[in-house]
Amino acid sequence: MSWTIENYDRLLIALWEHIQLVGVGLAIALAIGLPLGVLSARRPGFALVVLLVSGALYTVPALAIFALLIPYLGLGFWPAIVALVAYALLIIIRNVATGLQEISPDVLDAADGMGYGRWRRLFAIELPLALPVIIAGIRITVVTQVSVATVAAFINAGGLGDIIFQGITQDFGEKVVAGAVVTSALAILCDESLRRVELRLRANQAEHA
């Protein structure tokens, strides 16, 4: 434990870098995925194409995506972000589309009858109702991104993977384990807190229904 205690500041910096990778990756993925998800819910043909492309991206192993990006984007933070966004798209688009499609047509009819326009209906009625399913998607996305961001250290993007890789090169078991345990703890913490948000949202909606 001595290394961990003496170098807790290095672990914290790596943790912060890791959170930045996931945070920026998630924000960009949401900015792209939300509109594409809304569009997919409206147009089944478009949904098929988007889900096929993002599904293929999702299947490619993280290390392979990072390696393939090197000739085009080089090393560092931003190439890692590109890969993190690529991974997130499938789940966000799919869950936004599913969440919107699961809304009862009666609710939409009622909104139309009350004179809601298309955009107002989307933002005031549809997206709030789809929120639990969207949050469920964000939860899977964040857990996946915490995992993929660990491998991002391979292309010098920093984060907790850096501690792990340093430990492997230096043949220093404690450092490897410290990096792995903090990464796992971060993933478990994100998963559990987002699960609670999702449950609370569902409970709220059930109460109002």
């Binding site: 857990v143 915490v146 384990v177 990096g179 345990v181 990464t183 796992s184 993933a187 478990i188 998963d191």
Partner: peptide, 17 residues
Amino acid sequence: NILRTIPSLALLVIMLP
């Protein structure tokens, strides 16, 4: 469910020691 959340790289390198 906890096991499922552990990142793949973390799971692999924990085997080292």
